[in-house]
């Protein structure tokens, strides 16, 4: 049995299923669009009371500025719930296919399957899929699906067309058990940053529309409140930041073993450090009294841009030549 070929078949299959999942998530979002006429006044009041108090006391006397500005999250119609479930099921299936593809590739080469850019991109996409699948059901993240599945598809497509490398043996510098530790934690961190970025971007849109209510509601108005989105994005980014700290330290330990010095300001090290400081600044700004959460979020988004640069430009552009030349390109 040719495992590497089967790994590719599983990869293509997962892309097909992810495409279906993306369509289903879009379909789900369409069903979420709040229709003002459809929401009866009594319902809205019930929602407000339910969210604001614990003991049946009247809720805080704050009236929403528009009919749909507050608390429509609980009002999922049967239709949108069904579509959301279909989309989630498809995502689970696609993620399972993708994970099996990564595993088969690993078995085919008898090593951790993230030794070049193609493998890293695939494994990172799988990590995003797994992280989203695990968190989506519990947190009712159906609204996030399309913003997660679309980037996964983009990454898989680009890695197949631009980065594809035949399954093969590693170069000597990568033959170390640290490959399993340092790189896997790195892409799990990247997966968290990706989810944190998607939620963070939605937060900015949601908040903008809360402050300047648009004439017509769309699915954004069915999302959790901007404050809730901001908190969620922070929590996910925080997990990513802790993992990234570990990546940085594990990388330094490995560098000491492979190159004799734990820190040499090699371009990859520089960008790992830049990402770390930007996300550290984000954590810091969020703990600073008087800094607008929106400004903090801009820092986090900048951090994700650095993550992208670190994986693309730093690996592929010759300006950044350093010791981390493992793209396999």
């Amino acid at each position: 049995m040719n495992l590497a070929a089967n790994a590719n078949i599983a990869l293509y299959s997962s892309m097909i299923v992810y495409t279906l999942a993306m369509l289903a998530f879009t379909w789900h979002l369409a069903a979420r669009v709040p229709t003002i006429e459809g929401v009866r006044v009594e319902d809205r009041e019930a929602v407000l009371v339910g969210s604001g108090s614990r003991d049946g006391e009247p809720a805080a006397p704050e009236t929403p500025s528009t009919p749909y500005a507050a608390g429509l999250v609980g009002e999922q119609t049967l239709k949108s719930r069904q579509r959301g479930n279909i989309a989630l099921m498809l995502t689970y299936l696609a993620t399972a296919l993708l994970v099996s593809s990564v595993l088969m590739r690993g078995l085919a080469v008898s090593r951790p399957p993230w030794g070049n850019m193609f493998e890293f991109a695939t494994a990172a996409a799988a990590a995003v899929g797994v992280a989203y699948s695990v968190l989506a059901k519990r947190n009712h993240w159906e609204w996030l699906g399309v913003f997660i599945v679309a980037p996964i598809l983009l990454v898989l497509g680009l890695s197949l067309t631009e980065l594809y490398t035949e399954a093969g043996e590693l170069m000597p510098a990568l033959k170390s058990y640290w490959l399993g530790i340092h790189v896997s934690v790195a892409f799990i961190a990247v997966a968290m940053f990706t989810i944190g970025f998607a939620i963070g971007a939605l937060y900015l849109v949601r908040r903008h529309r809360e402050e300047k209510p648009p004439a017509k509601p769309n699915f954004i108005e069915s999302l959790p409140t901007s404050a809730a989105l901001e908190r969620t994005s922070y929590t996910v980014n925080m997990v990513g930041f802790i993992l990234w700290t570990f990546t940085l330290i594990a990388g330094a330990i490995w560098a000491k073993e492979a190159w004799g010095a734990y820190w040499q300001w090699d371009p990859k090290e520089v960008w790992t450090f830049v990402i770390w400081t930007v996300y550290a600044a984000y954590m810091h700004s969020r703990a600073t009294a008087g800094v607008d959460a929106r400004k903090s979020m801009y820092i986090a988004l900048a951090g994700f841009v650095a993550v992208i640069i670190n994986f693309t430009l730093v690996n592929l552009v010759s300006t950044f030549v350093g010791m981390h030349n493992y793209s396999g390109m």
Partner: peptide
């Protein structure tokens, strides 16, 4: 933030 920007030219 300044430190992160200042580190970039070195790469």
């Amino acid at each position: 933030l300044l430190l992160s920007v200042a580190a970039v030219p070195g790469s």
